[in-house]
Design a binder for these strands. Structure first.
Lengths: 169, 169
DNA sequence: CATATATGTCAACAACACTGACTTAATTTT
DNA sequence: AAAATTAAGTCAGTGTTGTTGACATATATG
């Protein structure tokens, strides 16, 4: 008996855990993420940027004064990958990078006015999409949406949402 | 008054539509999608494949006999991008491509046994992740999860989920 | 002073998307 | 039957985003 056959039998009792239900979830995530990122990608392309720039701008906005190392921890990419993108954003005056007075090895990052303006445009269209979806689905659905998404996230990053603040350690 | 200030005022009445709530949704989607795709990426790398191969294998599995054009419509990438990935999968015997007898311009795609085996492994770990999340969050949360994700998807693809069958036109 | 940490940089490489131009084969339309 | 359209494939070039590995510099900590 194959693994998937076993799963079918095991899940026959709970139809919300059936293979078909799970398969639908995979597709929902694929299409939702594709469309969720589609609009910002167009805006970014105008400035010669990509999705990676968006992520950096977003997390600097939410964590003003964040250091490069902490940003790497959130994004989980190599410093060489971040460096290319971050360097562009700093050179083109979207992000201000300053030496941390407390520990002069560290560089703190904040958005410039230019960076804030771009961040607003990017997050604006994503927020609008989510807002429309939230409104159409209703407040109870939103609770479920967040509960399931939180559980999908790996345990080590889940605390960022179940706990209190941003928690970027 | 800035755009975001206007939004704040407009949304102060519904706290589930506040800027902070929407911002949290953006992050949930980012982290959930990152971790959702993390495990399959490792498996794919063993075969020298990437996420694009996964998507092709997945949609061929769910739509056996699908044509190249319909696959392009689902993935929304260029035929040159698909060609590279699909060509590899056909050459390495994960996908069987045959001329459609009804319209000999068309090529129909199905997974080989080898392709089915890989698909099971890939979808298996994603299904397991979703299954755990569903079980932990509960059946009511799942209903909300699907309702919100469906609304996030662009209207033209939303019918794939609100309606009956796969509907890949 | 030695070691560890934070950051940056150079080089090479791979996956995956894009545009644009062109070809071949088969079907449909006129 | 000729013309137009559709389905699929190919070649060439480009850009974003990630990777590994090696190395450099400044600062902090032991």
């Amino acid at each position: 008996m194959s693994q998937s056959d076993q799963e079918s039998l095991a899940n026959d009792q709970d139809d919300y855990l059936s293979n078909e239900e799970l398969r639908q979830a995979l597709e929902l995530l694929f299409f939702a993420y594709r469309d969720f990122t589609g609009e910002p990608d167009v805006i970014l392309a105008n400035d010669g940027f990509g999705r990676a720039h968006h992520r950096v701008i977003y997390f600097v906005k939410c964590n003003p004064g964040i250091t490069v190392n902490r940003l790497l921890g959130i994004l989980k990419i190599t410093k060489q990958s971040l460096s290319r993108v971050l360097g562009q954003l700093v050179r083109e005056d979207f992000i201000l990078q300053q030496t941390d007075p407390g520990d002069r090895r560290r560089r703190t990052l904040v958005l410039t006015d230019k960076g804030n303006a771009l961040e607003s445009r990017l997050t604006g269209c994503q927020s609008a999409r989510i807002g429309r979806a939230y409104k159409a689905a209703g407040v109870d659905a939103v609770r479920g949406f967040k509960a399931v998404l939180t559980q999908i996230i790996n345990a080590d990053d889940r605390a960022r949402f179940t706990g209190g603040g941003p928690h970027t350690d």
